[in-house]
């Protein structure tokens, strides 16, 4: 199957989501979603992952449970989310009001050479999140839909959106990568001290 031509621009979508982040806490899935969030502007309250494929949603849950007054936004890829579909069930059972997940679904494992993922063959991640018990879940295909769904990412959760984006690799924007550094600066910005 050839790379998807139609779809939203992932860099623009992420920038639009984060434009209204305020003091929200952001967790990224490894690879391109990490670069997308870095491209939108580095922030001490971004926890970029560079590994631990499948961790993003659950890091988001631990953070959301620890910080119930803060909004937590997880931005990840379809491949990363598929590795952790069970975590959709775990999250749905806890019903964190302050957690939102946005998947940049390009239908591919972009980072490793654009191999097809299951979403390209009809596997419906938003359907799975909805069936697990997320309060709101949708597939977003157009700019108009994205516009209506962005405010919901900041509203009563758990919320899940699967954004169909083009399968083009955007230029690399690399944030810091040392795990200790990323942890310490995040905790310092959020909690003061380390």
């Amino acid at each position: 199957m050839s790379a998807r031509k139609n779809g939203l621009d992932r860099r623009k979508a992420v920038a639009q989501i984060l434009a209204r982040r305020g003091n929200a806490l952001v967790v990224t899935g490894l690879g391109a979603p990490t670069w997308d969030v870095a491209a939108a502007g580095d922030n001490d309250l971004n926890f970029y992952t560079w590994g631990g494929m499948g961790c993003a949603a659950m890091v988001g849950l631990g953070l959301a449970l620890a910080q119930p007054k803060r909004r937590v936004i997880v931005i990840t890829g379809d491949g990363e989310m598929l590795m952790a579909v069970g975590s959709l069930a775990t999250i749905a059972v806890k019903q964190p009001r302050n957690l939102a997940i946005a998947v940049m679904d390009n239908g591919h494992y972009g980072e490793t050479g654009m191999q097809a993922t299951h979403t390209q063959f009809g596997v419906d991640l938003a359907g799975m999140a909805g069936a697990a018990g997320f309060r709101a879940a949708a597939t977003v295909r157009t700019t108009a839909q994205l516009k209506t769904w962005i405010p919901r990412l900041y509203d009563n959760g758990p919320v899940f959106i699967d954004i169909k984006v083009t399968a083009e690799n955007a230029p690399l924007v690399l944030p810091p990568r040392d795990g200790s550094l990323l942890k310490l600066r995040f905790r310092q910005a959020l909690l003061g001290g380390a």
Partner: peptide
């Protein structure tokens, strides 16, 4: 999932 949960918890101060 528990390892990732613990990571998120610690980032959030728990």
């Amino acid at each position: 999932e528990g390892i990732a949960l613990a990571t998120g918890a610690w980032l959030g101060g728990e």
